[in-house]
């Protein structure tokens, strides 16, 4: 539990009364406050019988309690945020790490789009081959193993052994 709690020298608490936790707490309050107001529009109304609901419990009751609870927790989070000493590892990422992460996420998104339309094997080759090279593998045998042999094997495991559909 204490792994993430650092001393103030290490933490991003240069501004003593404001840190990333305070910002997140405020975002939460605004976001969950918004969710609270849309609850009536996002929950279907139960059918009425002779002007009364057949359900014993209002369908909005539990969601409303939950969202109010999150809002209360967010206020509590805001209240204690100034005393939390943690490192915001997101802003501590260097340029190389950011680029690698963004490229990987972009590859995930592209793979999601290709998966169904191009089929599993072809889309996986297009996804895994450049990514393997990008991550630093230069050995052609390893690249071929990862991007061609592996997808074929996975396809065979799912479709032949388990009789499960992969596009």
């Amino acid at each position: 539990m204490s792994d993430s709690v650092r001393t103030s020298a290490e933490a991003d608490t240069g501004k003593k009364n404001w840190n990333f936790n305070t910002t997140i707490a405020l975002i939460f309050i605004v976001f969950w406050g918004g969710v609270y107001f849309i609850i009536p529009y996002q929950i279907a109304k139960p059918k009425l019988f002779l002007g009364r609901s057949l359900m014993g419990l209002e369908p909005t009751l539990f969601p409303t309690i939950s969202v109010i609870l999150i809002i209360c927790l967010s206020f509590w989070y805001l209240f204690v945020s100034k005393t939390i000493q943690e490192v915001n590892e997101l802003i501590r990422m260097d340029k190389e790490q950011i680029v690698k992460t963004v490229v990987t996420i972009a590859a995930f998104c592209a793979y999601t789009q290709m998966f169904d339309s191009l089929g599993f094997i072809f889309s996986t080759i297009l996804f895994a081959c450049p990514l393997t090279i990008y991550f630093g593998t230069r050995n052609p045998i390893t690249i071929a193993l990862v991007s061609i042999v592996c997808p074929v094997l996975i396809y065979l495991i799912f479709s032949t052994l388990m009789h499960v559909y992969l596009p």
Partner: peptide, 8 residues
């Protein structure tokens, strides 16, 4: 080499 396989 293992990261893309894990992702797939």
């Amino acid at each position: 080499a293992l990261l893309p396989v894990t992702a797939v």
